[in-house]
Lab assay of single mutants.
Amino acid sequence: MIINNLKLIREKKKISQSELAALLESSRQTINGIEKNKYNPSLQLALKIAYYLNTPLEDIFQWQ
């Protein structure tokens, strides 16, 4: 199971779900699903999230 700190990191950087979704060329619903652990992002999307949040991938997503 993958757990994530996306919501915590996103809020700390003062970025809304909609703003992050626009940067990622994704939907706000996708970001919401990832944050609620209802959806696991593809590797490509996970890497883009890490890039746009300027945060190491392993700080956002962790195996448990």
Rank of each mutant, 00 (worst) to 15 (best):
A21T: 03
Y52C: 11
R28E: 15
Y52G: 02
E25C: 15
R10S: 03
I34D: 01
I15W: 06
M1S: 05
K14R: 12
I34K: 00
Q64R: 13
F61C: 03
L43G: 04
K38G: 07
A22F: 12
N4H: 03
Q17T: 08
P56I: 06
Y51P: 00
T30P: 02
Y51C: 12
N32L: 09
K48F: 05
Q17V: 13
N32Y: 07
K48D: 05
K36E: 15
L43S: 05
L8M: 13
E58T: 10
E35G: 02
N5H: 07
K13Y: 10
Y51R: 09
D59P: 03
E58C: 12
L8K: 15
Q62Y: 07
A50S: 10
E19T: 12
E19I: 09
S42D: 09
N40F: 14
R28Y: 11
L20N: 03
T30S: 06
L24N: 00
A50G: 03
E11S: 09
K12E: 11
Q44M: 11
L43I: 12
E25P: 14
P41H: 02
N40D: 08
L23T: 06
E19V: 11
K14P: 02
I31S: 01
I15V: 09
A21P: 00
R28L: 14
R28T: 15
N54G: 11
S16W: 07
L47C: 15
D59A: 11
R10C: 12
K12W: 08
K38I: 14
E35S: 03
N5R: 09
Q62M: 11
S27P: 11
S18I: 11
I49D: 00
K12G: 11
L45T: 05
L47P: 00
T30L: 15
E19K: 14
L43N: 05
I9A: 06
I34H: 01
L8N: 13
L20V: 01
E58F: 11
E58Q: 12
K7Y: 05
L43Y: 14
E11K: 11
L47V: 11
Q62P: 08
L24C: 15
L20C: 04
I2Q: 07
K7G: 06
N54C: 12
W63H: 02
S27I: 06
I60Y: 02
K38C: 13
N54E: 14
L45F: 14
L47M: 13
L20D: 00
P41D: 02
N54D: 14
L24Q: 00
K12M: 13
W63I: 04
Q29R: 14
S42Q: 05
S16H: 04
K36T: 15
K7P: 02
N5G: 03
S18Y: 12
Q17W: 05
L23C: 11
I34T: 01
E35C: 05
R28A: 14
P56Y: 06
R28N: 07
Y51Q: 09
I49Q: 00
Y39G: 04
Q62W: 06
K7I: 07
S16Y: 04
A50F: 04
F61K: 01
Q62F: 07
L23W: 13
P56M: 07
I49S: 00
E11W: 07
L24T: 15
T55H: 07
S16E: 04
A21D: 02
E35D: 01
P41I: 09
S18T: 13
P56V: 06
I3G: 06
S18H: 11
A50L: 04
L6A: 00
N5V: 06
K38F: 13
L20H: 00
Q62R: 11
A21G: 05
A22I: 12
W63C: 06
Q64I: 08
Y51L: 09
R28V: 15
G33C: 15
P41F: 05
Q64T: 12
M1Q: 05
K38E: 14
P56R: 10
L6R: 01
A21Q: 02
I34W: 04
R28D: 09
A22Y: 12
L20Y: 02
G33L: 15
T55K: 04
I9V: 11
A46N: 02
N37K: 08
I15N: 01
G33K: 15
N54S: 12
E25F: 10
F61V: 01
Q64H: 13
Q29M: 11
I49H: 00
N5S: 04
I9Q: 04
W63M: 04
I15S: 01
N5P: 00
N54Y: 06
M1E: 04
Y51W: 10
I31F: 02
S42Y: 05
N40K: 14
Q44A: 14
K48Q: 10
P56T: 06
D59I: 07
I31D: 00
I3K: 13
R10W: 07
T30I: 15
L20W: 03
Y52R: 04
I34G: 02
L20E: 01
K13N: 11
L53P: 00
K7N: 05
L23M: 14
N40L: 14
D59M: 11
L57V: 11
L20Q: 00
I9K: 02
E58N: 12
Q17G: 03
N4M: 08
E25D: 14
K36W: 07
I31R: 01
S18V: 12
S18D: 14
D59R: 08
I3F: 10
L24H: 01
N54I: 07
S16L: 06
L47H: 09
Q29T: 12
L57H: 01
Q29C: 13
K13P: 01
I31M: 03
I9C: 09
T55D: 01
E35T: 02
L8G: 09
A22V: 11
N4V: 08
L45R: 01
K38P: 02
N40M: 15
N54F: 06
T55M: 08
L24S: 09
R10I: 05
W63S: 02
Y52P: 00
L45C: 10
F61P: 00
F61I: 02
Y51N: 07
A50D: 01
Y39W: 12
K36Q: 15
W63E: 02
L45H: 01
I15C: 06
G33R: 15
N40R: 15
I60T: 01
N32V: 13
I49V: 05
Q17H: 03
L53K: 00
K36A: 13
A46T: 04
L57W: 04
S26K: 10
N37D: 07
N5Q: 04
S27G: 06
N40T: 15
Y51S: 07
N4L: 10
M1K: 06
K7M: 08
A50W: 04
Q44C: 15
N4I: 11
A21W: 06
P56C: 07
F61T: 00
K12T: 11
Y51A: 08
I31Q: 01
L8Q: 14
Q29S: 13
L57A: 03
K36G: 09
K13M: 14
E11C: 12
E25N: 15
Y51V: 07
R10L: 07
D59S: 09
R28M: 13
I34P: 02
L20K: 00
L53N: 00
